[in-house]
Design a protein around this nucleic acid. Structure first.
Length: 273
DNA sequence: AGCCAGGGTCTGC
DNA sequence: GCAGACCATGGC
């Protein structure tokens, strides 16, 4: 799979069913921007990178250490057979339309704390403003990478802050939820590590212990932050999809990959008309 | 100006 | 259990 891996560049070859731009900009992650045509810049796992793709190559440029190859392969979920999953999903006519309109969306395996915190911020909010709040959260409280970028601040760091400390990020009523989440994660009351492998209903209950985390935010955390592609977040757009297209529930072809189906339907529905 | 945004909490039946 | 007010903020 890897062709090249040195200090400043990693290239994965033979990659199919991946659109970098769609995957990074379909409302699942909030820290990526297209700094010039076809080159996406952002920070994940505390590392700044530039990402592009050519034919079947996924190209990463940055300042790499040994484990970065594994980290980024994992981030883009390269170990999962999206080609076969999409073929199966396309047996449903609506999913066929959505997947053919926006091919190559993958579910990114983000850090669980970042996903949890980001989707707390997302509540009753729109994507451009979510990005702004997350950006200010990072510049004010993240670690300075000395190149203009900042890491996503740890739960431990945020757990020491007060609601007033968060005023500059202008997150509104969500500030108290961010603090509560940070405290419960930092003191171990909520164990994010185990959420990727434990029973999914148990995982949902664990997350809902946090103030400001309901069914939707919990589901997003499991899908984007815990690699649980059977999680199925329902926001206003997905609610529309369900009433318009699936009044009797999801088709059988989505079993075990409901979250992937959700992402294609969500992005398609937001972009029609 | 008013409505909407990847919702959740709290209160009152 | 369930509907409805309310919550901050900004884009349109």
């Amino acid at each position: 799979m890897t062709v090249k891996n040195d200090k400043n560049i990693i290239i994965f070859e033979g990659i199919n069913t991946l659109s970098v731009s769609l995957s990074l900009d379909c409302g699942q992650a909030f820290r990526w921007s297209e700094k010039e045509y076809g080159i996406w810049h952002g920070v994940a796992f505390g590392k700044a990178v530039d990402i592009s793709q050519e034919e079947d190559k996924l190209i990463l440029k940055g300042n790499f250490s040994e484990d970065d190859e594994r980290i980024w392969a994992d981030y883009f979920d390269l170990g999962r057979d999206y080609f076969s999953i999409c073929e199966k999903l396309k047996s449903d006519p609506h999913l066929k339309v959505a997947i053919e309109a926006y091919p190559g969306i993958r579910i990114l395996r983000q850090e669980s704390w970042e996903a949890l915190c980001s989707f707390i911020i997302s509540q009753n909010n729109n994507i451009p403003r979510i990005k702004g709040i997350v950006e200010r959260l990072c510049t004010h409280f993240g670690e300075d990478l000395r190149n203009g970028d900042f890491t996503f601040p740890s739960a431990e760091k945020l757990a020491l802050l007060t609601v007033e400390d968060l005023a500059p990020i202008r997150s509104g009523f969500r500030a108290k939820y961010i603090i509560d989440a940070a405290q419960k994660v930092a003191n171990g009351e909520v164990n994010l590590q185990k959420l990727s492998s434990c029973d999914i209903d148990e995982a949902r209950e664990e997350l809902i212990k946090i103030k400001g985390v309901g069914a939707k935010v919990a589901e997003c955390t499991l899908l984007y932050g815990c690699g649980r592609v059977d999680a199925f977040p329902v926001d206003v757009w997905v609610r529309r999809i369900m009433s318009e297209m699936y009044p009797d529930g999801l088709p059988d072809c989505t079993k075990t990959v409901e979250g992937i189906a959700q992402q294609y339907l969500f992005h398609w529905r937001r972009n029609v008309e």
